[in-house]
Amino acid sequence: MTVKKTSVLVLDCAEPHDLALFYARLLGADAQVGQEPDLVEVVGGAGVHLAIRRDHGYAPPSWPRPEHAQQAHLRIIVDLADLDEAEREAVALGARPMSTGTEAGPYEARLFSDPAGHSFTIAAAVWSV
């Protein structure tokens, strides 16, 4: 018998409530504080489930600079027709566009950093969302 499993991506940061609200608004989900006050979960429809954890010694990743690893990367999938609007929403909520220096012309995946410095991509689906 196989045990039913699920997974949750946990992002570390200095202010988990603020970052959880950023992702909750961006993903149309809810931020939920559990029994552990330094861990906030973001849960919503369409399989959204991630957690934000306070790290008192947090230092943001420096990726795409080569001296440090990326640490984690969230990929948010949208319909191609919604890509520009999704980018506007992310920036309005506090995301910062990033560049790896390899992009050229129109592209179907856009790289950002969240307010705590984690990288994430908004990308066009190859299937219907």
Rank of each mutant, 00 (worst) to 15 (best):
R25Y: 00
A20I: 07
R110G: 00
T102N: 11
L39S: 07
L80S: 02
E103L: 01
E85D: 12
D18Y: 04
F112D: 00
M98Y: 00
V33C: 02
L21F: 04
R75L: 06
V126E: 15
A125L: 07
A51N: 08
L39V: 15
P97M: 07
T121C: 15
A14H: 09
K4Q: 03
A109K: 10
L93A: 00
A92G: 04
L11I: 11
G45H: 13
M1L: 10
L50E: 13
L19C: 07
H56Y: 09
G101C: 02
L19I: 02
S62G: 14
P66S: 12
S128T: 15
S7I: 06
V42T: 09
D18M: 10
I76G: 03
E36L: 14
V129I: 05
V48I: 13
G101S: 05
G47I: 06
T2G: 05
C13Y: 11
V43Q: 10
V8S: 04
L39A: 07
F22K: 02
E36Q: 14
G45V: 08
G117S: 10
D84N: 02
H73L: 10
P60T: 08
E85T: 11
Q71E: 13
E36A: 12
G117W: 10
A14W: 03
A95N: 01
T102D: 04
G44H: 13
T121D: 15
G101Y: 04
R53V: 06
A104G: 05
H49S: 09
Y107R: 14
A14E: 11
A81G: 05
P37F: 03
G45M: 11
S99W: 03
L74Y: 07
H73M: 11
T102Y: 14
D18L: 14
H68R: 07
I77H: 06
A116H: 07
L50V: 14
G101N: 02
T100V: 09
W63I: 04
G44A: 14
R25K: 05
G94E: 01
T6A: 01
H68A: 13
A51G: 15
L93G: 01
S113L: 10
W127K: 08
T2K: 08
V33G: 08
D12R: 13
R53A: 15
H56S: 13
E67Q: 11
A92Y: 00
E89Q: 05
T102E: 11
T121G: 09
Y58D: 07
D55E: 15
D30V: 07
A116E: 09
V33P: 05
H17K: 15
D30C: 03
A125E: 06
T102I: 01
P16I: 11
I76W: 02
D79G: 03
G101K: 06
T100Q: 10
S119P: 12
V10A: 07
D38W: 14
A124M: 10
R88M: 00
P106M: 08
R65G: 12
S7W: 09
A125N: 09
D82I: 00
A90F: 02
P64D: 06
A29M: 09
K4D: 01
G57E: 15
G117D: 07
A86R: 04
L26A: 00
V40K: 05
Q70T: 15
D114I: 03
L50D: 13
V91S: 00
L27E: 09
K4E: 01
V48R: 05
H73V: 02
M98N: 02
E15Q: 12
P66H: 07
I52E: 02
P37N: 04
A59Y: 08
Y23N: 03
S113D: 06
I77N: 06
